[in-house]
Design a protein around this nucleic acid. Structure first.
Lengths: 259, 259
DNA sequence: CGTAAATTTGATACGTTTCAACCCTCGTGG
DNA sequence: CCACGAGGGTTGAAACGTATCAAATTTACG
């Protein structure tokens, strides 16, 4: 039993599972509505500057002075953390409705690079303007806090996966999360196009590119995913539940289907 | 070269290092002042409820309804993220001046357990009361945002270490960060007492307890740290620079002392 | 169309985990 | 007072999973 690594009694392991958990589809729809509503609120109440970026262009870079936050309106973006000695780590993937730049608030400088992964648009908002607007329009503050809070939760779930799942399961979880993000935004989840190289995926998941490649090959061999005819960047997920079940099987290799 | 795992050109690797980086001691003093000032502001402007906790007691648990945030006034606390299937992961260690509970804002429920590691006090603040107070007293909002932002930055630095450093260096970095936290709070850094078991440290760093034990033994053998006469929970760090140098040596095993 | 980049796959090396034994400390109760 | 047991820690040997190195193949793109 993995969880016994911590002395804390694990009688409460299923607490989180016990929390109200609406069905994924409905939750996706609710989340989708939240994203749409938030974007509308931002657009209506804030002085935003629209900015179009192409793949590889950066919204900001680590070390730059922090003045603005950005909301992703389309496309998707990676956050890369850099160490002084040149190590780099993808620490986040941001989709429509997600924010960029919170990490700069504390010390007035950005701590990460934010880079477009394909063509996309961000809405740029001066932080001081945001604060003024929030003062006049409190619900806006709720939107901002929720976005920060959600980002922390996502980062921690990501850390949990990295530290507790073997490579194959990590890749499966990654695909599942990606599909979930698409679902929340009202997009189809059976057909997903990764706009990241194996090296980027591997960096994000804490493994090497070859390991990602092998994991995907195994998932395909077991028919948990399929590659499209064209290239190997398009992945079909016949059944998300099967993908989730695979992750569970990696965690508890019992034959029994518990819960 | 590790960094070539990502296609992004790495010409900018030292950007972060190039950012203004005051000497550690002075930075510690500045941070210490910030912590003191923040706590004073919170205490003056907010209706706080003081709450004393003993080792093992929880401030809140995952799944509980979110109503309040908490500021650590003394002691230290761990944040443990739980998955539905029982995996658990220490995702944060919070010291004096740090906040607890941000992760609950987004969906109204806490996503982690927050547990006291020794006797300590938190100041509990109703979230709605905090919002009202911030509306009347804007600097307070800055304090809250900074705290959230800093927590995100710290989590990402932690992820960077976990994904890019070998076990020994991770343990060394952990000790260095711990000492840095103490330094920022005006405490002595040559003598630190870990109030965590090897299993907890290992979980936090993404390795097993035996690996932590071996890493500490090796650091001690190389005189980078020393164990105290009493027990092996008290660790002396003769020279923080040597500890930092050890981490660098793990990353770039060249004999040359670059920069 | 040709070249560079990305991907796959195999063989091997390496680091961490697993399993096991043993030690130490501390609190408890015979 | 000391025997005892529980929890934490250390260390060794072997097993395991992932990284590394090295092809060969496919894909992207000027």
């Amino acid at each position: 039993m993995l969880a016994t690594a911590l002395p804390t009694p694990n009688a409460t392991a299923a607490r989180r599972a016990a929390a109200p958990m609406p069905c994924p589809v409905r939750n996706g729809q609710l989340t989708g509505q939240r994203i749409v509503d938030s974007l509308k609120l931002i657009h209506d109440k804030l002085p935003v500057t629209r900015r179009l970026l192409h793949a590889g262009e950066s919204v900001y870079e680590a070390g730059e002075r922090f003045d603005c936050l950005h909301v992703v309106n389309s496309g998707f973006f990676k956050l890369v953390n850099l160490s002084a000695d040149g190590r780099e780590q993808v620490v986040g993937l941001q989709f429509k409705g997600d924010w960029l730049g919170f990490d700069g608030i504390a010390d007035g400088r950005h701590g990460c690079d934010a880079t477009a992964m394909d063509t996309g648009e961000v809405w740029t908002i001066r932080y001081d303007a945001l604060l003024s607007a929030c003062a006049e329009h409190p619900p806006l503050m709720g939107v901002v806090h929720s976005a920060m809070s959600r980002e922390m939760t996502r980062d921690r779930d990501s850390l949990l996966s990295i530290c507790t799942l073997p490579a194959d399961a990590r890749v499966a979880e990654f695909l599942r999360n990606w599909a979930e993000s698409l679902s929340e935004r009202g997009l189809r989840t059976d057909q997903i196009t990764l706009r990241m190289t194996r090296a980027e995926i591997g960096n994000y998941l804490g493994m090497k590119l070859e390991t990602v490649s092998r994991a995907l090959s195994r998932l395909a061999r077991d028919s948990i995913i399929q590659f499209n005819e064209n290239g190997r960047r398009d992945i079909r997920i016949p059944d998300l539940a099967v993908l989730a079940a695979f992750v569970q099987r990696c965690v508890s290799p019992e034959g029994a289907t518990l819960q």
